[in-house]
Write a protein that binds this DNA or RNA. Structure first.
Lengths: 289, 289
DNA sequence: ACGTCCGATACCGCCCGGGTATCGTGCTTG
DNA sequence: CAAGCACGATACCCGGGCGGTATCGGACGT
C-alpha cells in the first residue's frame, strides 16, 4: 500500500511553483538537501519522474503537471475536513493558569502558538498569586498551568521547559551585591519576603530562605513585582530565578547551594482532553530561548 | 501548519469500523500499542476526542463520526490521483536482468512485489548466462539486475540482499564429501567447469578455482544446472553458494579461504529513473529468507 | 579557464513509529 | 466476593526517517 503523506505534497506544490528547489526550501523554512530528497522519494513512491532537473532550476514533467493540478484540491479537502471536525466537536474551552507574573513571556509565546494551531479553541488565562504554585490546577480552576517547581506534584504531570538557577535579589548597595555567588549561611538574619499563608510547604520553604525567619511583619507578596518593590523599599531580601529581569537598583546574586527551579508546563495526570495534550505538544516543540 | 499523514487516517478508518483497537491492529498487521498511540496523536493533532474508550472497545464521538464520513472521500481522491499521475507518465517499461538461474526464487519474489506496488509498469525479465555477471547491465540491455558478486563494479551501484559463503560442489563419493570444510590447497589438480570466454576476470577467477587449471577440454557452462550436471557426469568440480539446492548425489563443502559471494541488486550509478529506485526500495524493504 | 549557481550526495543526530512487556480497570464468573 | 479476563494505556527499546551541515559535480557565463 502506498502511503504518501500530506507534507511531501505541500513540498511538491512549493517546488512546482518556485521551479527552484533552493527557493522552495527557503519558503518552507528548511534547507535544500532534505527537500531534494523528499521530492525524489515522492517520485520513487509514485514510480514517476515529476521534475526535469536543469542547470537553472527544475521544470514539471507531464506527470508532475497532473499531480500539481490534482493536489491542490486534495489539500483543500484535507483542510476542510479539519475545520468540520473541529466544528463538530464544539468549541471546547481551554483554561490556562500562570504563576503570577513569573512566566509572562514564555506564557504569551506558548498561548499565541497554541492559538495559531487550534484557531477554533477559546483560550482563557488565569493568573494566580505566588501562593499557589499549581496556578489553579489543584483547585480545578484551570486545565493546564505554566509555573515553576518545586511543589507537591502528586497526581500532576510536568514537562520542563527550562531549568534556571536561583539567586538572591538585593539592592545594589548590599554588602554582597558584587559577589559572584552566595550561600545560605551568608544570608542568616535577613528578613525575607512573605508568601501567602497556606502555600505549598515545599514551595514556601524553597523560596523564603528555608522559612527560619521572623517574617510576621512583612506584607504578603502576591507577585514578583511586589517582591522586587519590597526589596527596594523595605530592605528585605527575596529569591528569584537568575534570569528574572530587574529594575535599576537591584541585582541578583546566584545562590550556590540550592537546586535550580524548573519552568514547567503542568497538567493533571489523569487528563484525557486532546487540547491539553496539544498544548503540551506545542510547548515541547517550540524553542524556549 | 497541521500535517496529518494518510497512514494515520487509514488507521483511524480501520479502528472506527472495528470499534476495537486490538482487532483493528490485527487487520492492519501491527500490534495494539502503536495503534493506540497513533489514534491519540491524531486526536492531539486535531485537538478533538475522536473515540470514547469503553471497557469493551471504542465508539466514535460526534467529531469522530464527521471525520469518518469525510475521510473516505479523501483517501479515494488520493488513490485516484496516483492512478492519474501514473497514466500521465505513460507506461514506462522496466527491464530486469537475472544471472542465469542463480537468483530464481528471490528474483520471482522481488518482481511480484514490484508488480504489486507499481501495477501500471510493464516488466520484462532477461535471464543472462554465467558469462555476464552484470546480467546485461553493462551492455545496456536491462535497467536493473539481480546477480552475484564479485565483478567489476565501476559505474555500478549495488545493494546487498544476502551474503552467502561459497563451497565446492562434488559427488557424494568424493574423498572430501564428508568434510566440514576444505581449503583451496586441498583442491589442487581438480578439473573445473569452464565459464564462457570473455567473462569478467574477477568473476571468472572467483568461481573457477583461481583459473590455474587445464579446462580447455571442459564444455562451457551457461547455467548453474549445467554446472551441476557436469559435476555429476564428468567428475569435474564447481563452486557454488552453499545454499544452492542440489540434486541427489551431490554435496557442497564450504570453502574456508574464500570470501562469501553477495546476492545483490545492481543498477547503473547514473540512474535517474524512479522505477529503478523503486525496485531497489522494494528489494531493500522485503525480507530475504 | 575559472567562478558561480544549481541540484545531488555523504554523513550525522534526533525523533518518531514500529516492537515487547506490563499495568489498571471494569466486567464476568465460579 | 474473589479471581480471572479482556481491553486500552503506559513504559521502554530499537531501527529508520527526516531534519541538519559540509561537500561534490556539472553546466553555464563571463
Amino acid at each position: 500500500m502506498l502511503e504518501v503523506d500530506l507534507r511531501s505534497l505541500r513540498y511538491f506544490i512549493t517546488v512546482a511553483e518556485e521551479r527552484h528547489i533552493g527557493r522552495a526550501a527557503n519558503r518552507l523554512h528548511m534547507t535544500q538537501p532534505p527537500l531534494s530528497r523528499a521530492i525524489r522519494q515522492l517520485e520513487d513512491e509514485l514510480g514517476v519522474l515529476l521534475f526535469e532537473r536543469t542547470p537553472k532550476g527544475v521544470t514539471l514533467t507531464p506527470a508532475g503537471k497532473v499531480l500539481y493540478d490534482e493536489t491542490g484540491a486534495l489539500l483543500g479537502r484535507a483542510d476542510r475536513i479539519r475545520r468540520r471536525v473541529a466544528a463538530a466537536a464544539g468549541t471546547a474551552p481551554l483554561a490556562i493558569g500562570t504563576l503570577a507574573d513569573a512566566a509572562e513571556q514564555v506564557g504569551d509565546r506558548l498561548v499565541s502558538l497554541f492559538r495559531a494551531r487550534y484557531p477554533h479553541v477559546h483560550v482563557s488565562i488565569h493568573e494566580s498569586g505566588l501562593g499557589d504554585p499549581t496556578a489553579g490546577l489543584r483547585a480545578g480552576l484551570v486545565d493546564v498551568a505554566i509555573t515553576r517547581t518545586p511543589f507537591d506534584d502528586t497526581g500532576i504531570s510536568m514537562h520542563v521547559l527550562r531549568s534556571v538557577p536561583v539567586g538572591v535579589v538585593m539592592r545594589d548597595d548590599d554588602p554582597f551585591a558584587g559577589h559572584a555567588s552566595v550561600s545560605s549561611t551568608d544570608l542568616a538574619g535577613r528578613r525575607w519576603v512573605r508568601l501567602p499563608e497556606g502555600a505549598d510547604p515545599a514551595w514556601a520553604a524553597y523560596w523564603t530562605g528555608s522559612g527560619d525567619n521572623d517574617n510576621g511583619a512583612s506584607p504578603v507578596m502576591r507577585t514578583i513585582q511586589e517582591c522586587l518593590q519590597a526589596v527596594l523599599w523595605n530592605g528585605t531580601s527575596a529569591l528569584a530565578p537568575i534570569d528574572q529581569p530587574l529594575p535599576a537598583g537591584l541585582v541578583v546574586v546566584p545562590l550556590d547551594d540550592r537546586p535550580p527551579s524548573d519552568l514547567v508546563v503542568a497538567w493533571p495526570r489523569t487528563v484525557c482532553s486532546p487540547l491539553v495534550r496539544g498544548f503540551v505538544q506545542v510547548a515541547k516543540h517550540c524553542r524556549h530561548t
